[in-house]
Design a protein around this nucleic acid. Structure first.
Lengths: 212, 212
DNA sequence: ATAATTTTTTAGTGATTACTAAAAAATTGT
DNA sequence: ACAATTTTTTAGTAATCACTAAAAAATTAT
């Protein structure tokens, strides 16, 4: 039935060609992991969503953990790369914070069933044996705090915020607020309620120099 | 039917007396649920920590879900009742917020292995069939937001914050920050780092009238 | 002592989990 | 055509899960 190779591997190899689109299957797995979390997403459920059988999943992605890690990288790139870059490049730090949180609120409510951030929630209450997953999501969360710190550092250098600002504390607080938004999204808060938090996030910054 | 028996070893009923302290066993179950979460805490692990066999657990507590719910009530009462009351009764709203967040930071780091708030994290990524647990922890989280709102309402009536303050937004943001702290605790932040967030929480409040 | 009642211990139950062995099917190379 | 290679389908595997049946043990009531 499958005529030509879909997209993943242009020149087909020797054996029977793969009958499913690997990238599409990965996106479907991402949806399941995002909405249900790592542990409750059973391989059977993943296979159903991906429309393949278990042996195809294991041949293409290794195992459940590596499928999750690949879905996680896809998620980061597809949803957060652009907002992060805009946050770091925006000229005004106050607008950058407010815009980033507003966009975050939109993403956290994005699939039909809002489920917060995959990095924050999908690997909570996971078996301790899954240390690679645990360490990966933890590192991604700490990287977000570093992103806040880097932007605030620049703002201090450019004189947008006082040079004696406690940047570790402030970036930690912004990161805490961002991660808390994931719980709010799961609890069913409205877009307006989540956006309201974005406005208050910016209030944690020191007052504008021009306001003083 | 044992008529009037407190818990541990008062007037025994008719049959063989219980060989374990029910309250102590409940506290040990609470530790396991708090540190490991609902789903990863297996009945076998709970029994080991409680030093009883499965049939004793089921006879005394019903099943895993009702044991969790009872442990959750114990946790709320033992850890959060007093801080909540102090927060609501403190005369100054700015000090109330800062003190509450500082105490929260201490609680979230409290067992040997810091594990955040049981209400926020223990029932994340739980099977959808456990609707009673899901709804109970959600209701407790929303109750905390209501606590913030009630205290801010009083502050507005007393003139400590402007009467046009957006109290739903502000209480939502404080609740978001509080819930985010649980993730921070699990990620291994230090007591000092968590306390620094408490100071910034208070900065989300409108400026003091006396500061204007 | 004997019966009645309740708990404890032992040893499981069926269901679900992630994962795979084996063979059939579909392609390429010769 | 035929061998080589890879994927798909079918039908499982062992391990773990929450939970329990059954009988022994420990108490009170008569």
């Amino acid at each position: 039935m499958p005529a030509r190779c879909p997209a993943p591997s242009p020149c087909r190899g020797k054996g029977r060609p793969r009958a499913f689109d690997r990238d599409l299957a990965l996106r479907r797995a991402l949806e399941v992991f995002w909405q249900r979390g790592y542990a409750p997403a059973s391989v059977a459920e993943l296979c159903k969503a991906m429309k393949i059988n278990p042996p195809s999943l294991y041949a293409a992605f290794g195992n459940k953990a590596s499928l999750f890690l690949e879905a996680l990288r896809y998620y980061e790139r597809a949803y957060w790369d652009a907002p992060s870059r805009r946050f770091l490049e925006a000229p005004d730090v106050y607008a950058a914070v407010e815009d980033f949180f507003e966009e975050a609120a939109r993403i956290l409510l994005s699939p039909e069933t809002p489920c917060g951030c995959m990095v924050v929630l999908a690997a909570v209450n996971i078996a301790e044996s899954e240390s690679e997953i645990i360490e990966t999501v933890r590192a991604l969360r700490l990287a977000t705090r570093k992103m806040f710190a880097d932007r605030l550092e620049r703002a201090a250098l450019e004189g947008q915020i006082p040079s004696d600002t406690d940047i570790p504390a402030l970036s930690g607080a912004l990161n805490t607020l961002l991660e808390g938004l994931s719980i709010q999204a799961r609890d069913g808060l409205s877009p307006a309620e989540l956006r309201a938090v974005a406005v208050l996030a910016a209030r944690m910054l020191p007052p504008r120099a021009s306001d003083a």
